[in-house]
């Protein structure tokens, strides 16, 4: 079943001086898939994620999430759509400082007006799954980056979304914490079957995906699937990246005569 379908997505910024951030992107993601989006800086990967996240309408083309175009909804319906169908994880966690970790996690349920007893039960289950029960009464500035990101993931999945969207979730973490977070993404994807789309520039993080899509200059460039071994997949990703990167630098030896 298709969870996400992008049809001929283009995005142009600017009025006088126009700049094409995305050019005719087509993408289909099936239920339960774990997809990574990669590309050099300025390639449009974050713009693409924002378009999928329903916060940046495309200039042309159509976004279908579970068969529905969220940009056709009026603003309060769109908010309800985000609240029930989507989960977000950000590079800088974006936890709210005035709330405890636990309160941050239940925030989507609070906005949806759930009963307190139901919230507490879900909080307990989710925290146990993510192994953060011991910090739910702490404040955001009392926990480490890895713990904060775990809390953010808990917030993103507590309402069992259809689609989990992550923007450089390991960008602010050290390699150990990054590994933990990626393993968590993988296990959540495996156990709950939540469709996950993640933007990253870290090939090691990307190697946890089932499939990695590469974009360059706002256009679809390549896509590779994970085969038998993660190590081999990592190598493949590195190969594509070095090819992409080589062109980006514009440092052809032949020019440096």
């Amino acid at each position: 079943m298709e969870i996400l379908k992008l049809k001929h997505i283009s995005k142009i910024y600017g009025d006088k001086v126009q700049y094409s951030a995305l050019k005719d992107i087509n993408l289909t993601i099936e239920k339960g898939e774990f997809v990574g989006i990669m590309g050099p800086s300025g390639s449009g990967k974050t713009t693409l994620l924002n378009v999928i996240s329903t916060i940046d309408p495309p200039t042309s083309g159509e976004v279908l999430i579970n068969g529905e175009n969220p940009y056709r909804l009026e603003s309060s319906k769109l908010a309800l759509f985000r609240r029930s169908k989507l989960g977000f994880v950000f590079q800088d966690f974006n936890l709210i400082d005035s709330l405890t970790i636990g309160e941050n996690i239940v925030l989507p349920l609070t906005l949806d007006g759930h009963r307190v007893s139901a919230m507490n039960k879900k909080l307990k289950d989710t925290a146990a799954r993510l192994n953060i029960e011991n910090i739910i009464n702490k404040r955001t500035f009392e926990v480490s980056g890895g713990q904060a990101q775990r809390a953010a993931i808990a917030r993103a999945i507590i309402h069992s979304p259809l689609l989990l969207l992550a923007d450089e979730p390991t960008g602010n973490l050290d390699s150990k914490a990054a590994k933990d977070v990626m393993e968590l993404f993988e296990s959540i994807n495996r156990e709950t079957g939540v469709t996950t789309v993640m933007v990253t520039h870290d090939p090691r993080s990307a190697s946890y995906c089932h499939r990695v899509i590469f974009i360059k200059d706002g256009q679809f460039f390549n896509e590779i699937h994970c085969g038998e071994s993660r190590q081999q997949f990592y190598q493949q990703i590195m190969d594509v990246l070095s090819f992409l990167g080589g062109e980006e630098n514009d440092l052809y030896p032949i020019r440096l005569k």
Partner: peptide, 8 residues
């Protein structure tokens, strides 16, 4: 809050 689905 808005991205988490808070309405206006």
């Amino acid at each position: 809050l808005m991205i988490l689905g808070m309405t206006k």
